Simulated assay, not measured.
Amino acid sequence: MDNVGIVVDDLDAAVAFFTELGMELEGRSLIEGSWAEKVVGLGDMRSEVAMMRVPDGPGRLELVTYHSPKMVTPTPAVTPPNTLGLHRVMFAVDDLEDTLARLRRHGAEPVGEVSRFEDSYLLCYLRGPSGIILALAQQLN
C-alpha cells in the first residue's frame, strides 16, 4: 500500500493535527488539469494535497482539500463508527494519554473511552480533522 487518502475541509489544521501525532510533511502541492480530472472522475477539479509520512516507516496519508468542485458533506456530517465505508486509521503510540492530550489541543475528541484490551493494549477512538475517526493503540507489553 502506498497511502490512504482523506478529504479534509481545512488542510492547514489537518497538517498540524497529524504533525502533532508524529507524522512529517513530505510535500504539499496543487493538483489540477485534465489528467487529474480523468483519474478522480470530477470535471473542473482543483485540489490541494499534503502528503504526510510516518517517520522511519512506509506509511503515508494523503490529505486533500477540494477547491473545485465544492466538497460534499455526508449526511449526517458526523457519522458514527459503524457507518459503511472506510472505518478508521489506527496509529501506534508510546503514551496514549499524552498523545490524546496533545491532540485535544487540535480539536480531537474521544468517541468513547480509553479502554484496556487484556494486558496487551490501551486503545481509544477519537475524532480528528473534518470528523474523521482515528484510533490510538499503546502496546503494554
Score class of each variant (00 low, 15 high):
L21G: 01
E109Y: 08
M52K: 03
P58M: 12
H106K: 14
D98A: 15
L134M: 13
H106L: 11
D10V: 09
M51S: 04
L84P: 14
I6W: 01
P110E: 11
L123S: 02
Y66W: 11
D94K: 12
I31Y: 05
A16V: 08
L126K: 00
E32N: 06
M23C: 09
V7C: 12
R104E: 14
V114I: 15
V4A: 14
R102D: 04
E113L: 15
P69F: 10
L136Y: 01
W35M: 06
R88L: 03
C124G: 02
L96S: 05
S115I: 14
G43W: 07
L30H: 02
I133N: 02
N3C: 06
Q139R: 13
G107M: 08
V54M: 14
L25D: 07
S120Y: 13
V7G: 04
Y125P: 03
V64F: 10
V89T: 14
L25I: 04
V40R: 03
P81F: 07
D56V: 02
A135I: 12
L96P: 00
E26G: 15
D2Y: 09
K70W: 05
F91G: 12
Y66P: 01
P129C: 04
M1P: 12
R60P: 00
S34R: 15
G128H: 02
V93T: 06
A108T: 02
D9M: 09
G131W: 06
N82V: 11
A77V: 10
E109P: 11
S29H: 14
I132N: 14
D2N: 11
M1T: 12
N82P: 10
A135G: 15
C124P: 00
T79N: 10
A14M: 06
T83V: 11
V4M: 09
I6A: 03
Y125C: 05
S29C: 13
C124S: 02
C124V: 04
R104Q: 15
V39K: 11
V93P: 02
Q138Y: 06
R102V: 02
E113H: 15
R88H: 15
R127Y: 07
S29L: 15
E37I: 07
I133Q: 00
L25C: 10
G5H: 00
S34Q: 15
P81C: 05
